[in-house]
Simulated scan of single mutants.
Amino acid sequence: MKIAIQYGAARVDADGHVGGHDAGATLVRRLLRVFPGAQLIGPVKRQCEGFDVVPLEAVDGDSTVVITMDVIDSVNIWRSLKARCDEPKIMNFVWWNTSLYSNPVEHAALALSCALFPTFANSERTASEVREIVKSWTVQPLAEKARVAWVNLGIRLEHVRPRNEPPVPVVLYPAIYLTDRKQPQVFLDVVERLAKRTPIKVEARLHESSLISEKAMRLSRHHWAWVGPLTANRDDYWQALARTTAFLATATEESYGLEYIEALVAGAVGVFPDRPWVRAILPAAYPFIYRTPAEAEELLYRAVTDTAACRRELDVAADGDFAQWLRARHDDDRFEKTIADQVVEWFGS
């Protein structure tokens, strides 16, 4: 069985590589690695570095499983393939927070897609949300037959670099967008107050769409802040994480939290809001969780002024070794094996 990956926002550069640092581009590259010889669906047929880009109309539906990251478009993909084969094989990959689709039409389309086609989710929490959406928004006969599986995305542990402690503590804005869901205003308010109490350097590496925003300009005006574009490559990204002291998470919702896991594994102390998505990725006794901006400030102050003690608290919360706790639960080797096995279970070898 061949694999084709559908992600409309994927961009292939002049050298034949999938470009971009956002989660979608990263996951496309990961899927191409998991399924050697997989195709990437795109507008124009093209040979690339290790994979081919093919239009949907050129996909052999009889022998190909289409893994789509554009889940609400699954029915349209099925119809296109159905015109040229008897039984199209579609697998949804839900890699984002389901609240992304709040419009009733989009919400209903998501429910129908996940009821009709096998759906793989990027975390247990996302899988539970998918099941609830299908149950609430579709008829019982469809909901009862829905097939949903999941595994944590995990990270590539071999990318982690040795720590390089900075002379002035570095506080990271742990996202690449300044969208309302990320609550950047809370981050800005907290770090502005913190900078008046103790020396820090704040770093924000943003997608180009957020670099020109008012909030980005507000942060960049401070002498203790650096606001710039995303790192040129993954190696630079991990080198930057290796010298990051702490970060302040402020998002109201996350489907998984890949950026936070990467920063934690790299040795940064994470300060998190008291949200269900946070509890899903951290030890039950994780000590740096806040309910108010004032609590966030105090926890972040401790993280940058007494970092070693905070790291010892993390080890205690994980019953001995926080880094190992993370590695055991967020290794992408497990993701790669599970999604490959799931394709075989649902569609055959």
Rank of each mutant, 00 (worst) to 15 (best):
L314F: 03
G61A: 12
M91Q: 10
P36G: 06
V171E: 09
V151H: 15
P167I: 02
E144G: 13
H107M: 06
P273Q: 01
T307N: 14
V75E: 10
A146Y: 07
L230M: 15
Y101K: 02
A284L: 09
H207N: 13
D70E: 12
D235V: 09
L300W: 05
S80V: 09
S209H: 10
A9C: 05
A108S: 14
H17Q: 08
S255E: 04
V202G: 03
V316M: 11
E49M: 01
I212R: 15
P88S: 11
A263M: 10
F120W: 06
A303I: 07
E259V: 15
K82Y: 11
G61R: 12
V170T: 11
T179R: 10
V66S: 14
W150A: 11
Y290H: 04
A268L: 03
P273T: 01
I67P: 08
Q342M: 06
V151Y: 13
A25M: 07
E144V: 02
S255L: 00
W224Q: 07
R46S: 14
C48L: 04
F335K: 05
D52P: 05
E158H: 08
R197E: 15
D315R: 12
P43K: 08
L172A: 14
Q183S: 07
L314M: 11
A303P: 03
P229A: 13
F347Y: 09
Q140D: 15
G50I: 05
I289H: 12
E313N: 09
H21W: 00
D60G: 09
L27P: 00
L40V: 03
R218I: 05
D62L: 06
L81I: 04
L219G: 00
R334W: 01
Y290N: 06
L219V: 01
R181N: 15
A317S: 15
T244H: 10
Q6G: 03
P118N: 11
P273R: 04
P162W: 00
N97M: 03
V130D: 02
L258G: 02
V18R: 10
E203A: 10
Q185F: 00
V65G: 08
A240F: 08
N164V: 04
V316Q: 14
E259A: 15
K89S: 14
I155Q: 11
W95T: 00
P287C: 09
R218C: 00
F120T: 00
R234N: 08
S99E: 10
A108V: 00
K82A: 15
V130M: 03
F288E: 04
V134H: 04
P141S: 01
G257V: 03
W238N: 09
P43R: 07
T292A: 12
V343S: 14
Q342L: 06
L194P: 12
V54F: 05
G154T: 06
E253S: 13
P118V: 02
L299P: 04
I289M: 11
S74Q: 02
A175I: 00
V160F: 07
A280Y: 03
G228W: 05
A249M: 05
Y7V: 01
